[in-house]
Every structure is written in structure tokens, then in C-alpha cells.
């Protein structure tokens, strides 16, 4: 029995948490799984998993129907940043969440790690010629002229099959009604995709929220460089508002609600 199993069992037994969200190997594939006090022996099957899922999004879903439940989560750095954003937007109560920290993705900041988000395969020749290489830094995508940028991004966006995978996997996409399903903006189920509205609407909504986990790009069947696009969004947000989602506390500059929202009519 390893350390992680001991901690989770202890927490469950001491009622520090009612539910733990981690991974369990099912038919050879690690999948998100709930571990509970009633079925405590199952905790021995808990694994860290190299695969990533937005566990905090699952927690937010549970919280929306069972706000009293105390939830434990297996958390890498990206999960932790996503949790911070969900706290800021009142989708989760930090009092109700306990995390077990685990090793994280390889990145310029952290070389030794064991998660699935490794640097992507270099692009094929066609994409290199007329598209956008996924591994570019935002500055490197700005060497092209305006005309060239538009052509290259349009090539990328045009591949979109409107599967909504990027939105569905995104840990910080939690709106009940999504603009991408609003019939005045987007025609659901019709291709080609609206260029560039579809992707820019999502990009704008990522401002002040995106925590650069890269799950959207992992999920994208068309290999659109979404992470690059949202990284630029993050850079603009940092430049204009000095706000970094997931690490800065405090309300997002894009929130129109303010700190104290009440439904009481204001006195004139």
C-alpha cells in the first residue's frame, strides 16, 4: 500500500472528505473514478495515471448538486490552477476541497514530470507550409505579416469539425448556456465552421480563465493550435490587466459581476 492510498483512506475514515476523485484503471485505461467511504477497499486501485482529465470540473459538477459534500482531488499543478479559477468564479468552495498533490507535466518550469502533456510532435510539411505549428510561442507566430497570419489561422480553424471537445474538456468552462450553441452566432452541426467567430468567441471567453493546461489541444481531433491561441490571450490579459488566471487571487478583470453581487434593488 503506498502513501497516497494511506492518506486517502485516512481522510475518508476521519470524515475529512466524503468523496475522493482520482483515477482507476478500467480495461487497461485510466479513467476518472470516485472513491468513497462505503467502498474503501477500492482505494487500493487508485492510480496517479499519466492520462489527464479535468477532475476539478467533475468536482464542480458534484458541488452544484451536493454543495455539502467534502471532496478530495488528485491534483497536478494544472488541476490546482483550475481549482483556483473555479474558486474565484464561485463554482467551488475552497472549504470543501482537499487536494493530494502529485507530480506534474514537463514544462520549461518543470523538467521532470510524468504526465501526458509532452511537447507535441513537430508538424508535418503541409501544416508547416500553410498552417501554424503547434509548438510555437505566441511571439513566434507574430513573425508573419497580417495577411499571412490570417491565411494560416484560417487554415487551422477551417479544420474544425465542431465537436465541442475543447469546450467539454476545459476545466474552466462552466457556463450553463454557451455562446457557441447560440443560434444567432453559431449554426450547430453545420460545417464549415464560422471563421473566425467560433474560435475567437471561445478565445475571448478564455481571457482571465485559461490556466494553460493544454487539455483542449490534447482533445482536438483536428490538431488546431488552441493552446497557442489561448497563450496569446493570456499574454494580452497579463499585459493589459496585469492578471494571471489560476495564480492571481481576486476577481477576474473580465467579470462583470463585481465582488459583492446582490439581487436587492439599489437605492436611488
Amino acid at each position: 500500500m503506498n502513501m497516497m492510498h494511506e492518506i486517502v483512506k485516512e481522510w475518508l475514515e476521519q470524515e475529512k472528505i466524503d468523496l475522493f476523485i482520482g483515477y482507476k484503471v478500467v480495461d487497461g485505461h485510466p479513467l476518472p473514478c470516485f472513491f468513497t467511504r462505503e467502498n474503501i477497499d477500492d482505494v487500493d486501485n487508485l492510480v496517479e495515471s499519466k492520462a489527464r482529465y479535468p477532475l476539478e470540473k467533475i468536482a464542480a459538477k458534484v458541488y452544484s448538486t451536493h454543495p455539502e459534500m467534502k471532496i478530495g482531488i488528485l491534483a497536478r499543478d494544472c488541476n490546482q490552477r483550475a481549482l483556483n479559477v473555479l474558486y474565484v468564479w464561485n463554482q467551488l468552495d475552497p472549504e470543501k476541497i482537499e487536494t493530494v498533490g502529485i507530480n506534474c507535466c514537463p514544462s520549461p518550469a518543470r523538467e521532470h514530470a510524468d504526465c501526458s502533456y509532452l511537447e507535441r510532435e513537430p508538424s508535418g510539411p503541409l501544416k508547416t507550409l500553410i498552417g501554424i505549428e503547434n509548438n510555437l510561442k505566441p511571439e513566434q507566430a507574430e513573425v508573419y505579416s497580417q495577411e499571412e497570419r490570417f491565411k494560416r489561422w484560417s487554415y487551422e480553424f477551417e479544420k474544425c469539425i465542431k465537436c465541442y471537445g475543447c469546450r467539454n474538456i476545459c476545466p474552466v468552462c462552466f457556463c450553463k448556456e454557451c455562446s457557441l450553441e447560440h443560434s444567432d452566432l453559431i449554426k450547430k452541426g453545420e460545417l464549415p465552421v464560422e471563421i473566425p467567430i467560433f474560435h475567437l468567441v471561445r478565445a475571448v471567453h478564455m481571457a482571465g480563465r485559461c490556466i494553460d493546461c493544454g487539455l483542449c489541444e490534447d482533445a482536438c481531433p483536428a490538431n488546431i493550435p488552441l493552446r497557442l491561441l489561448y497563450r496569446e490571450v493570456n499574454q494580452i490579459t497579463a499585459r493589459l490587466f496585469d492578471y494571471r488566471a489560476g495564480t492571481d487571487s481576486g476577481q477576474s478583470p473580465f467579470s462583470i459581476l463585481g465582488e459583492n453581487v446582490t439581487l436587492e434593488p439599489m437605492s436611488l
Binding site: G124, P125, L126, K127, I130, K151, S154
Partner: peptide, 26 residues
């Protein structure tokens, strides 16, 4: 406005030799 005039990606007619024997990749 380039959005209005955009006719889809311009795939080159003759693919450069780098394409030979390799997957195109998207």
C-alpha cells in the same frame, strides 16, 4: 476584409520534394 474573400486554404499545386514519402500531417 479577408474573411469575405477567403476561399479556403491554398494548397500548393506542386508539392515540394519534402512531401515525398512522408505523411502530410495536418
Amino acid at each position: 476584409n479577408p474573411i469575405k474573400g477567403w476561399q479556403g486554404p491554398e494548397i500548393p499545386d506542386s508539392l515540394p520534394s519534402i512531401f515525398e514519402g512522408r505523411a502530410l500531417g495536418v
